[in-house]
Design a protein around this nucleic acid. Sequence first.
DNA 1: GTGAAAATGAAAGTCAATTTCAAAAAGCAA
DNA 2: TTGCTTTTTGAAATTGACTTTCATTTTCAC
Lengths: 153, 153
Amino acid sequence: MKVNFKKQNRLKEFSKDKSKIGLKNSQKRTLIIEYFLHEDKHFSVEELYNEIKKISSEISYSTVYRTLKLLTTCGLADECNFDDGITRFEPVHKAQHHDHLICKRCGKIIEFKNNEIEKLQQDVAKKYKFSIKFHRLALYGLCSECKKKQRGN
Amino acid sequence: MKVNFKKQNRLKEFSKDKSKIGLKNSQKRTLIIEYFLHEDKHFSVEELYNEIKKISSEISYSTVYRTLKLLTTCGLADECNFDDGITRFEPVHKAQHHDHLICKRCGKIIEFKNNEIEKLQQDVAKKYKFSIKFHRLALYGLCSECKKKQRGN
DNA sequence: GTGAAAATGAAAGTCAATTTCAAAAAGCAA
DNA sequence: TTGCTTTTTGAAATTGACTTTCATTTTCAC
Ligand SMILES: [Mn+2]
Ligand SMILES: [Mn+2]
Ligand SMILES: [Zn+2]
Ligand SMILES: [Zn+2]
């Protein structure tokens, strides 16, 4: 595998994390983390496991699972739910919080950030004297490509 | 159980539904539907099952489950996911679509509708040439009452 | 190297959701 | 009402994603 070394700083960040107290440097975990951060996609455990198996047949589902959970604990990954019963993980990149458009036909995931929406959410919260800790906004439908294909049917 | 007969029109609506072709009029299903529509809450199968058991010990979890799924198919109920791994069902009432504030401490669910947010979602979709079929917006945090209690700790 | 502690993999366990299937209920027609 | 067919029901089994267990392997400080 080719590792994007621009992402290596993320690993260093991980190494410095307080959660790392008591952790050892395992080759397998490092490989999983590098691959995950480099690909920068929305991976289910299964998907990441299958991709990594291609480049290294020596890694188990359990290890991939535990590594993704660990990254989540350390704040380097986020769990996503897209209403299909599968938990996906995405790297937390510097480009902060964002929400998602999910194509129900091809599965494509588009990220977006809309500050006006975020602001209006706060207005809603204020109205109900509610403190928002986090939120989930997902827009489901058809991406542009799938719309074209649909018309062709 | 006291049935709110103002809601009976909903049942008639159900009876007319095309999906009802081939369905028989079962007393148990009717009881479940009446209770569900009358209470107008966000029920998990387990919760609805437990409440109905109190008034009629003769109904099984399976039947409650199947009835809620049937209502969903008929468009009289919606499934909700509030990030706790439990599917909840809510009646689809005339007061159309809405989104939710969910208190992570006491579980309270507040419904809200914000047309500006809905509008901005369409703007986002347009930007990506995406057709939104439906969306989910959930704001998680602390309700006003729980905020007070938290300070008291 | 040696030993303690952490990581790993395979298998087992968990739990909500879903399906199976034999028995009961509904409903139609004689 | 009775007989017959279809739908509904309940208990139990199954599914599937996720999570934990535990014996073995790896890491790493000494
Ligand atoms: Mn994302
Ligand atoms: Mn609601
Ligand atoms: Zn698509
Ligand atoms: Zn609360």
